[in-house]
């Protein structure tokens, strides 16, 4: 439990070292912190406010104003459903419904196992391939509800394969951890 705040402070400190204490650096600092940690936790906001010598509230207002910043930890994989005009007209909202249904979370949420997070994006500029979902960095064109199932299945299989592969490779380690447990 104490591991996470420590990591946050370390990550934030690393970013702050590269910026001077000018208020106009606030947005670039936040962007870097998010790059480091995947989101902007409360502890990081306090740290940044302290460093720049500005009220905590100013940092919070900037974080909540801009769509780019997220305040909850991301999942291992990020799902971004494009809801640009072209995607919306070609059924992007149906795709978003399908993701919500399958992952059991709302837009902006992260699954409890922190495997996936779901959000929308205004437009990724791939209107020719609408409706589009961006999975991590991969742009999936022409996503349909069945494709959503397909994508999720491939991640599930990969995960199973991954854990099986690990199990095989480190069978001794696994046995050890079992006995420990």
């Amino acid at each position: 439990m104490t591991e996470e705040p420590k990591q946050i402070l370390q990550g934030t400190g690393k970013v702050l070292k590269e910026f001077s204490k000018k208020k106009e650096n606030l947005v670039p600092i936040l962007q870097q912190v998010q790059n480091q940690l995947g989101y902007i936790p409360r502890e990081a906001m306090l740290e940044i406010a302290d460093y720049l010598g500005i009220p905590d509230m100013d940092v919070y207002s900037v974080v909540t104003f801009y769509n780019q910043f997220r305040r909850n930890p991301p999942g291992k994989h990020s799902i971004r459903v494009c809801l640009g005009t072209a995607c919306h007209m070609k059924g992007g909202y149906i795709v978003l419904d399908a993701w919500k249904r399958r992952l059991g979370i709302e837009q902006g949420g992260t699954t409890p196992d922190r495997e996936f997070d779901l959000d929308t994006v205004a437009c990724v500029g791939c209107c020719a391939m609408a409706p589009v979902t961006v999975v991590d960095t991969e742009v999936e064109g022409k996503t349909s509800p069945t494709r959503v199932d397909g994508i999720l299945l491939s991640y599930k299989l990969e995960k199973e394969k991954g854990s099986k592969g690990k199990g095989k490779g480190k069978s001794k380690g696994k046995a050890k951890s079992k006995s420990n447990g």
Partner: peptide, 25 residues
């Protein structure tokens, strides 16, 4: 180079300036 943080209103020039200054746009 300054990276905008995803606020449509920042396309408006005075909001864009505010965001470069480190304020909400």
């Amino acid at each position: 180079l300054f990276q905008g943080s995803g606020a449509f209103v920042c396309g408006e020039e005075t909001a864009l300036i505010a965001s470069i200054e480190g304020k909400p746009g």
